[in-house]
Design a protein around this nucleic acid. Sequence first.
DNA 1: CTCCAATTGTTGGATGTCAAACAAAACACC
DNA 2: GGTGTTTTGTTTGACATCCAACAATTGGAG
Lengths: 161, 161
Amino acid sequence: MSETPRRKARPLAASAAGGAKLGLLPGLLGYHLRLAQRAIFDDFAAAMGELDMSPGLFGMLVIIEANPGLKQTELANAARLDRSSLVPALDKLEARGLVARRASVEDRRVNGISLTAAGTALLKKLKQRVARHEKRLVSNLTAGERETLVALLQRILPEHR
Amino acid sequence: MSETPRRKARPLAASAAGGAKLGLLPGLLGYHLRLAQRAIFDDFAAAMGELDMSPGLFGMLVIIEANPGLKQTELANAARLDRSSLVPALDKLEARGLVARRASVEDRRVNGISLTAAGTALLKKLKQRVARHEKRLVSNLTAGERETLVALLQRILPEHR
DNA sequence: CTCCAATTGTTGGATGTCAAACAAAACACC
DNA sequence: GGTGTTTTGTTTGACATCCAACAATTGGAG
């Protein structure tokens, strides 16, 4: 009665890694997290298709829309990016005509960031595709399971967030 | 009775992002996954301390130990890295004297990868620290919750893994 | 046997991220 | 009111990762 639960006795530590043994890696939370995030990232890119958008840039657009006029440092904090990492990302969005850096008049150091009309329009399309992507992501999960997953994720190292 | 469950009515979409609104981002699984992975990565690096080790390199050491002599392409597949990405990583491990590229005699294209004595010794220390790190990670979770978390992660886009 | 195709490790170019250093601007304080 | 400190956006340098292309080697078809 005290046997191990044997749920099929699969190789257990080889999986899709090409036959090589993975040792203790499958026992680490970070390992599974990394695989899941990679899978999500790939599916996101595929879902955006010819609209050519990454999760990070999409997140920036969403934050800008929700906080029009915020400055670069605030946007970087909200997007969990370094101030310096934001620069090339914003450059790209600006080059595509999706966002505008508007120099502040009260503080000439500050750029106020906002969506252009084209940015707002594209974001609307992107949101539809993201919704489909998200739906596919959780298609194997019930609503309760999805909620549980998010709740558990938030309870990992909560002091760091 | 069909009211929404109101579990405290917090701001819900501001959290630690510096006061900026996050729009629909907190409704996306990938968003929470990215935050959790970042937190884990940071804690991992801190846990390794002066031993100067990343999750990726640690994973490589573990795989090499479990599959001594495997070739670079196989190692890359197991570590979910591109063949070319493996090269600088292996260079670093080799420069630190932790692994050895041994040219095969049957097939002169192939390098057999294995741990050196120093690599084996360091890996032993690393494993202890990783164990502590992992323990801290899940300190807010019961064993069942941890298992549930891993199971749910594996059910996201399972066809991609 | 010869020649074409596949495999292996590597290089080079692109991207995304961070940390450190910097100039310009604003602020603080005496 | 002048001087030192802080803030802001940027530049630079360092990595890690991907993809495409490459030379060396092996294997296969005829």
